[in-house]
Each structure stands twice: as structure tokens, then as C-alpha cells.
Design a binder for these strands. Structure first.
Lengths: 204, 204
DNA sequence: TTGAACGTTCTCCAAACGTTCTCTATCCTT
DNA sequence: AAGGATAGAGAACGTTTGGAGAACGTTCAA
């Protein structure tokens, strides 16, 4: 029940988890602010306080990098399949039954996620084929290298890998198809609608 | 009992649920208005108020994003994600009709299925990359062109596309990688363990 | 040990938001 | 023709939300 959070507080929480996943440690207030486009540590601190009140996070007072994740993780789902092992390609492998199971719910489910069917071959070299589905998490920002659903000039949605060009503030949208050229736009023309967090394909 | 809704009120209610499904949070009034083609927040507010009177919705007064779904929310939908349809040029995502929801359970689950993590690049040109996972259904037979997990000489498993050669009863295992050569075995040496029915990848 | 970086608290400010209101237009019923 | 129900536009108001920056004491690393 995190529904009492404001938009910004949610973004701060996501940024903390993202930083933890990416760097192995929780962020400093400055780092958090930089990730969110906030220049004032005081503002970031106020948001973190709100997360503490919501019991999503704990803080060791005064300590540098003192944020700790707490609180509820998404509920475990009964959507599990046995995970048997690895296939070694090129040279074959062992098919030894493993005891582990894979929880597809953890993989895909979550708030603000939706599925898009991909049309076209623009990301084919990234293993996203025509007709595949991608699970997209709604987001306004993305990190360089992530695959995003981007709206160009407000009326054209595309699936591309993103790169921010600090030099001039422009944004490059890179197709994964050597037959297509990267596209460069001023940041004002590109609106990120979501980040691809998973891809799936059905052979039927 | 609850009062009847007008058409427009029903559309507002649907738009709230749609927004919740896509973004994980309820909409603000002008987001609702934008989705419905209403420019005036006041009008949207009046519709929301009618939904409150009908006990379909609750509102935390004054709060931003204060709409809450109330009453019987039909499905708990644990394993479903909204399927927005194809990503096509010329349409912002908000304008794409919410065709359906995709049930990941039906997609993947079933008796005699298991998951393998793929190692190596032998199927890269079929969009199956190193680190991907494949859902395999146990089977002893496969149709030409299917991707199978095959056991060679009883001790080496591999992931390849299969082709039966009627002329001599042999079996060809085709990698999807132009750097690798097809392998031809007599049928007696190849034992099919399963057929790939789905593939999935996580970007995390 | 010392200084820079950090967490914390504070005030001030602006934009966006929810809310209420009036005015107007359209359609349906009798 | 009149009246009511439905719906949209837009203005106005107070509140919520979010950001900037200063100030202070503490933590941490060189």
C-alpha cells in the first residue's frame, strides 16, 4: 500500500532501488538529486523523509550513504516453472535437472507496466524481432543504453536504444539494425514513455 | 441502490481504470481530461464526483492524484498486464486502444514445461541471445523448423532448429548463426527432449 | 588533524492541482 | 415552445507539491 506517495516520492524510491541495483550501494543525496534533476540536497532529503514515513526506507541518521531499503517487496506469485540449467551453445551441454524454479511473476509483474507488440525490425540485432512482445515500465527518464519507448514530436512512438549527448543536450535514438541510421533530436522533441524491462516471444 | 451512470461517466470510470493499469497510479484531473478530450478540469471533476456518488470511486480531498478505486474491482488480476497493441508510428501510447490484457500464466504455464537458460550464441540469428531463457515443453518428437532441446549420444544437450531428412532418415540440427555449421546425425544418435514454445529475456 | 563533503533543518517561492463557480450549448421529452 | 438533463469552457481561489538555497553540525577521507 504505497499509494500515499506523491509522484516525485515514487521516483525517488525507484531511483534509490535503481542505484542500489546498479552500484551495489545506496546513493548519497547528491547522487540521488543528480539522477532526478534536483539541485538541492534539502529537497532530496525531504523526499527521503517521506519514504521513511511510508516505511519503505530506513535511514541511519547523519551517516553518509545512510539510506537502507526496508518494507514490502511485491508479493510472491504462484507463477513458477522449474529452471533446469544452462544450455551451452556451440558446444552442447548438460541437461541436469536443477532444483531451482523461476518465478515469472517477479520477472514481469509490477505497477505501471504494460505490454507492447513490436512491429518492425529496427531492434532485430538486439534480439527483438517483429512480432515479439516487450514489457515496458512507465518512466519519464532513462539511462544511456536502455531500450525505451520514445515519443517524437508528440505523435510518433518508436522503440530504440537511447543515448544522451551532454555536449549539446540532444538525444540519440539508436536502432539495433545496421540498415537503419541513428536519429538525433533535441531533447525537447523526444518524450520518453517507458523503459523496456523484459522481452518475450511465443512460438505457436 | 447506486444511481445510474451516464455514458460519459462510464467513460471517465473506464479511463481511470485504464490509466491505473498502464501507469500504476490513478490519473490527475487534467490527465483524465486529456485522455477524454476534455479541456476543463472542472468538468472532469464533476464527472468524478458523480462516480463518488455512485460509490465506484473515492477521493482524498485536495490531494493530488487523490482518486481511489472503490467497490468491487472485478479481477484481482495477479498475472495480467495490459496489452496495448502494436507500436506504430503516428500514435502516442495514450491513444492506442487497450485491446486486451495478456495472461502470462496462459502464455507460459502448462504441464511438462521447464525453463532453460541459454548460454552461447548459436541461436542468435533467431533472436535467442546468450543469457535468454527458453520455455521448453517436453516432447519426443518435433516438426521440421521447430527449435528443440536435443540430446546427442545420450550425454550432450543442445538447442537447435531441427530438420528431418527423409531420404536417409538422418536429422540435421541447424544453428541460427552463420559462423556455425549445421550438424547431421543419424536419427538413432539424436534424442529430442523438448520443443521451445517461448523465449524471454530480462533487462535488469 | 583538517577540510571538503555530507546530512539535516529551515525559509522562501512558483507551478500545478483540486475545487467551486458561472455561462453556454446541445439534446431529449412533453 | 418550454424545461430539464447532460456536458464543456474557463475563471477564480486556496492548497498541495516540489524546488532553490542558506546555514549548521557531523562524518569521512586525505
Amino acid at each position: 500500500m504505497t499509494s500515499e506517495l506523491t509522484d516525485r516520492q515514487r521516483q525517488v524510491y525507484d531511483a534509490i532501488r535503481d542505484h542500489l541495483a546498479r552500484h551495489g550501494v545506496t546513493p548519497k543525496l547528491n547522487e540521488l538529486g543528480h539522477a532526478l534533476g534536483i539541485r538541492s540536497r534539502g529537497v532530496v532529503h525531504r523526499h527521503v523523509r517521506a519514504l521513511v514515513d511510508a516505511r519503505l526506507v530506513e535511514v541511519e541518521p547523519g551517516r553518509h550513504r545512510g539510506i537502507r531499503l526496508a518494507g514490502a517487496v511485491p508479493p510472491p506469485e504462484a507463477l513458477e516453472l522449474p529452471l533446469l540449467g544452462r544450455i551451452v551453445a556451440g558446444l552442447p551441454l548438460e541437461a541436469i535437472p536443477d532444483e531451482a524454479t523461476i518465478d515469472l511473476g517477479q520477472f514481469f509483474m509490477g505497477a505501471g507496466r504494460f505490454v507492447l507488440r513490436v512491429q518492425g525490425d529496427s531492434m532485430i540485432e538486439a534480439g527483438i524481432l517483429d512480432g515479439d512482445m516487450v514489457v515496458v515500465k512507465q518512466a519519464e527518464r532513462a539511462v544511456d543504453g536502455e531500450i525505451v519507448v520514445a515519443l517524437i514530436d508528440g505523435d510518433e512512438a518508436t522503440l530504440k536504444r537511447i543515448r544522451h549527448n551532454r555536449a549539446d543536450g540532444s538525444v540519440t535514438l539508436l536502432p539495433a539494425n545496421s540498415a537503419l541510421a541513428p536519429m538525433i533530436y533535441p531533447a525537447s522533441r523526444v518524450q520518453i514513455q517507458g523503459v523496456v524491462i523484459a522481452q518475450l516471444r511465443s512460438y505457436r
